[in-house]
């Protein structure tokens, strides 16, 4: 005979103890199992990042009195941060140096990422590793290396002198904003390549062939297809360089000289010599806000620009 779906006449009563029901719920909930696994990491992140950040923000509204804090709410630190020319100047300089460094690094790294994505076929992984390795090797030592190179009696000056090209060492090499830009660009170059490379690698090769087929020359093809499609990688790369470099203080300390000091040096000093922690907290938060606003603006502008092209 023809069977259709059979109703199960009397499903056994749900023999549910309280614990059984809880266990069944746990088994049935992906989210619950997922959050159980996530919870240790989230706890650690909360304790070492979110809570400290919250306390820092709170502290930025306090006042330092000797070694104690006056916990009365005040906007004084922020008023000072905005009004005092030296703070403004240092922040502005940090942003300028970071921006230049970002532009330089992305411009220099793009062709490299392009080369690996499109022209390396064998051992692509070896190339990628070769470019990433320096990023994870000692930051301090890399800066030190540039000090050795750019120094008054450093590699460049002593080398040029040895070749008889100059009489006196070039004093502007070390302890200048230029030195900071060069050092930072070198330090973050590896970081810029990866996102750009990934976005280039994702581009469907047939799109490029189609463009060629439709009559685009190499330049037009690059501007019309490759560049727009790799823009997400460029945006990620620039943010990944810009944001951390604004807050760098080791490079300016070692190779920047008085003209190369940045806002982070000042923040560090508030927690060291100057010993005004609330002011330092305010400056740090201030810097983060500015960086966040600039980053969002940058993302928004590039999106707009891409929409206009499209």
């Amino acid at each position: 005979m023809i069977e259709t779906t059979i109703e199960v006449s009397a499903p056994a009563p749900r023999s549910r103890s309280w614990r059984g029901r809880l266990y069944a719920w746990y088994l049935s909930s992906d989210a619950l199992k997922g959050f159980t696994l996530l919870s240790p990491t989230l706890l650690v992140m909360g304790f070492t990042m979110c809570i400290p950040f919250g306390i820092m923000v709170v502290m930025s509204f306090w006042t330092q009195i000797g070694f104690e804090f006056d916990t009365v709410f005040t906007l004084g630190n922020y008023a000072e941060a905005i009004e005092k020319p030296v703070y403004r100047a240092l922040l502005l300089r940090s942003l300028t140096i970071s921006s230049i460094c970002t532009v330089v690094t992305v411009l220099v790294s793009y062709p490299m990422a392009y080369y690996v994505a499109f022209h390396v076929r064998k051992r692509k992984m070896a190339w990628i590793i070769l470019m990433t390795v320096p990023f994870f090797s000692s930051y301090l030592l890399r800066i030190f290396a540039w000090k050795v190179i750019l120094g008054y009696n450093g590699v460049i000056n002593s080398g040029l002198k040895g070749l008889g090209l100059i009489e006196q060492p070039l004093a502007f090499l070390l302890y200048s904003p230029t030195a900071v830009v060069i050092t930072l660009a070198h330090a973050w170059a590896a970081f810029a390549i990866l996102p750009i490379f990934i976005s280039l690698e994702k581009i469907d090769r047939s799109l490029l062939e189609a463009a060629t087929d439709l009559g685009d020359g190499p330049v037009k093809r690059f501007l019309g297809i490759t560049l727009p499609l790799s823009m997400p990688g460029v945006i990620v790369a620039s943010l990944m360089i810009f944001i951390p470099t604004v807050g760098d203080y080791v490079t300016p300390t070692l190779v920047g000289g008085p003209d190369g000091l940045m806002i982070a040096n000042l923040i560090q000093a508030q927690f060291g010599l100057i010993n005004n922690w609330p002011m330092g907290a305010a400056l740090a938060f201030d810097m983060m806000l500015v960086v966040a606003v600039i980053s969002l603006l940058y993302i928004w502008l590039t999106r707009k620009a891409m929409e206009n092209i499209a």
Partner: peptide, 24 residues
């Protein structure tokens, strides 16, 4: 968003996290 938060230390300037942890 959870992944984004966990990824933050990769981009937030280290000085900020250093300072914040020091305060805590």
């Amino acid at each position: 968003p959870i992944i984004f938060v966990i990824m933050l230390p990769m981009v937030v300037p280290l000085i900020i996290m250093g300072v914040a942890l020091l305060i805590l």
